[in-house]
Nucleic acid binder design. Structure first.
Ligand SMILES: [Zn+2]
Ligand SMILES: [Zn+2]
Ligand SMILES: [Zn+2]
Ligand SMILES: [Zn+2]
Lengths: 146, 146
DNA sequence: ATAAACCCTTAAGTAGGCTCTAGGGTCAAG
DNA sequence: CTTGACCCTAGAGCCTACTTAAGGGTTTAT
């Protein structure tokens, strides 16, 4: 069940990207089409699509294609790595993600105080109460990085 | 109070980046040094540093320098925009950030189930219970984008 | 007063991630 | 059986965000 296949143009539209990018991802070894039609058209399965969605979401939040390739590849070449390595890698990535979330929460808070302070009216923002938030050095204090 | 100034090298080290990048950010209009020494050395204030930290954190979570420039610029050229515009922009960015956080939470969950399922031992990961999670199309289902 | 460790500028080069061009097949509709 | 909307490949080109190079001042320490 669910053996529906998509042509490259359909998948591109579904995913909000374009065909060139999909072909590029193929050459980069990121998302391959399950098979080709008799005439050589790429045919993507639902799984291929899921893989692409994962990629696009991960990209959106700042992972490089190289990192994404590793993430997507966790289930592959299982025989080439020990469980210890796998566990170490996933643990590190999880911390990384937690740090990213924390960063986003802070940026969000800064924007929210701007957003709420602003009256939203049609007048010039010259006297807008926005001023203080981003100007305040404490708005986004540096705690610890890396 | 707190009128400490940093040379470019110090700031670069503090921020975990390097001097070339800081000079680049200057040419890109992102982070300027408050002033120059008699001999032309850039001298960064604590506020300049905060601005840089904001930039670096925002970059880490996938914002482009162009977007970051806008974020950092919200408090500038206040006279050129209406409160309405400001409010609209911040509102849109906040939604964007919420979507990013949601994406990260999903990726995190997927990695966490991998992480917990794996025994972490020294044997080959060939029979590792990792298999199912990333292979399952539902792991990162496409809901709605853009 | 000479080294070591900083700093400056301008300009060219690089890596990652697409995006476009050229030249050509494929397929459904009318 | 042609037109329009797809698809293919190979390769060049482009944008972003740095990074390196070349040539040269400045500071601090011994
Ligand atoms: Zn306002
Ligand atoms: Zn207002
Ligand atoms: Zn395992
Ligand atoms: Zn194991």
């Amino acid at each position: 069940m669910n053996d529906k296949l998509y042509q490259i143009g359909q998948l591109a539209k579904m995913a909000g990207t374009n065909v060139d990018t999909l072909r590029y991802y193929e050459t980069a070894g990121l998302v391959n089409a399950t098979r080709r039609s008799a005439s050589g058209y790429r045919l993507y399965s639902e799984q291929d699509a899921q893989r692409l969605y994962f990629l696009l979401h991960a990209k959106k939040v700042g992972f490089s294609l190289k990192e994404i390739k590793q993430l997507l590849g966790l289930r592959l070449h299982k025989d080439e790595h020990t469980c210890e390595e796998v566990k170490h890698y996933t643990g590190a990535k999880i911390s990384e993600i937690e740090a990213k979330i924390a960063d986003l929460e802070k940026i969000k808070q800064a924007l929210e105080s701007l957003h709420m302070a602003c009256c939203g009216g049609g007048e010039s923002a010259e006297n807008c109460s926005i001023l203080s938030t981003l100007e305040d050095p404490d708005t986004f204090k540096h705690t610890s990085d890396k």
